[in-house]
Amino acid sequence: MTKVSMTVNGEAAEGEVEGRTLLVEFLREELGLTGTHVGCDTSQCGACVVHVDGKDVKACTIFALEAEGAEVRTIEGMANPDGSLNVIQQAFQDHHGLQCGFCTPGMVMSAAALLAENPKPSEHEIRDYLEGNICRCTGYHNIVKAIMAASGQDVSRIAAE
């Protein structure tokens, strides 16, 4: 067991882990941050996406020890400082960009990473960026729409209620 410490959602976090402990296990089991989901265990589905030093990373594809000293952000740390939903979270709710919700945290984290590097992505760019995030329920339409809306773009063309 090795000691690991990192900053998670702005707060210092530390624990004892094995070398093989995945970041997602550390977050879920040691820190109780269960909003980061395990969908496929093999870095395909994207339900476990978190930010490590600002980059979107699948938390099942990185060891906890690799995040030593890093700034980690999870879905639990995405709300506005006053606790209200941030613009992406709000858009997913308003535009029905979710059904069962299991992929949603990963989708929100990927969307945030996309918008950080490309504040006004085209629909095509959004679809491309989400290639590592599987949703089995929605058919993606409302997810794409939510991200367009969160980036302040007109979504009236994408279909009404």
């Binding site: 879920r28 909003g35 395990v38 879905i75 979270q89 997913f92 709710q93 029905h96 919700g101 945290p105």
Partner: peptide, 22 residues
């Protein structure tokens, strides 16, 4: 056309599935 009942909990990660129950 109301949102899903747990939409707010899904987007902030607080909706619990079986593996998330303490």
């Amino acid at each position: 056309p109301l949102p899903h009942d747990a939409a707010a909990r899904h987007v902030d990660g607080s909706a619990r599935y079986v593996d998330d129950i303490p």
